[in-house]
């Protein structure tokens, strides 16, 4: 256990890990994204209620799922950074925040576009969309807090505290928004139940969720590698690597 933590705290090891993983994770991600999109757009059958606009589900739901998971990844990195003072966890947290915010933005924008043909309005105060919007603000808050501090290691600790507070609050926020929505529910709006989704529609969705997870991992690793290269630009192990090519 300690050895693993120690390894994660060692920049050369993590740098090489990034270097090794990226070249095969990147193609997998791209292929999965392409296959999933083509499958969802071209080969999955039409939803009999919503027509073809439901095909937005193949980007909307994965983005939303990974955006939420991304916050927990960030909080986990924050915990590691607070407790063990591992600098790399700071880097991971810093890399994850803008990516998570981008995922949330994607979920919101695709949700709005989906809402137009389905509900007749670009924006509806639906429980899920509202929760997503609040999640977006939580991400933006973390990024803004990080940028506000001059001292970046203090910034990382401040963000770690904030993400942990957010982690405790997210389930409460989601539950309360659900509760709020169930009390104010407009009669005409109905969402097709996801439990009843047909396998021919479900498999491409699962593939896309996997692809978005891979994309999240790849982008975090790419950011970490760039960050590491800059932070250790004077370190001999990195110069060796650069000269070795």
């Amino acid at each position: 256990m300690w050895r693993i933590i120690h390894q994660f705290g060692s920049p050369p090891w993590v740098y090489r890990f990034c270097d090794k993983v990226i070249p095969w994770l990147m193609p997998i991600t791209i292929v999965a994204l392409l296959v999933g999109s083509v499958w969802g757009l071209l080969f999955a059958p039409t939803d009999y209620k919503q027509g073809d606009s439901y095909r937005i589900i193949y980007i909307h739901v994965p983005a939303a799922v990974v955006a939420l998971a991304g916050y927990y990844v960030m909080a986990l990195a924050g915990l590691v950074s607070l407790v063990w003072r591992v600098k790399l966890a700071d880097t991971a947290m810093r890399a994850a925040a803008p990516i998570g915010a981008a995922y949330t933005a994607i979920a919101l924008i695709t949700g709005a576009i989906w809402g137009k043909p389905t509900w007749g309005a670009w924006w509806v105060w639906d429980a899920r969309i509202t929760s997503m919007l609040i999640l977006f603000f939580l991400y933006v808050g973390v990024i803004a807090l990080f940028e506000a501090y001059e001292n970046k290691s203090a910034a990382a600790r401040a963000c770690a505290v904030l993400t942990l507070v957010g982690t405790v609050n997210i389930p409460i926020i989601y539950k309360s928004v659900d509760w709020w929505y169930s009390l104010h529910q407009p009669a005409s709006i109905k969402f097709t139940g996801e439990s009843a989704i047909d396998p021919s529609m479900l498999y491409p969705l699962l593939l896309m969720i996997g692809a978005f997870y891979c994309l999240f991992a790849v982008t975090v690793l790419l950011n970490m590698r760039a960050e590491l290269a800059w932070n250790h630009r004077d370190a001999s192990w990195l110069k060796q690597l650069v000269q070795g090519t």
């Binding site: 609040i134 603000f137 939580l138 933006v140 808050g141 803004a144 807090l145 506000a148 904030l162 507070v165 957010g166 609050n169 409460i172 926020i173 539950k175 309360s176 928004v177 509760w179 709020w180 009390l183």
Partner: peptide, 19 residues
């Protein structure tokens, strides 16, 4: 910045209070 950080966290309180 403070407003940006904590207003999202106030959402459940607002919902329960108005409820």
């Amino acid at each position: 910045l403070l407003a940006l950080l904590i207003l999202p966290l106030y959402v459940p309180i607002l919902i329960a209070g108005t409820r």
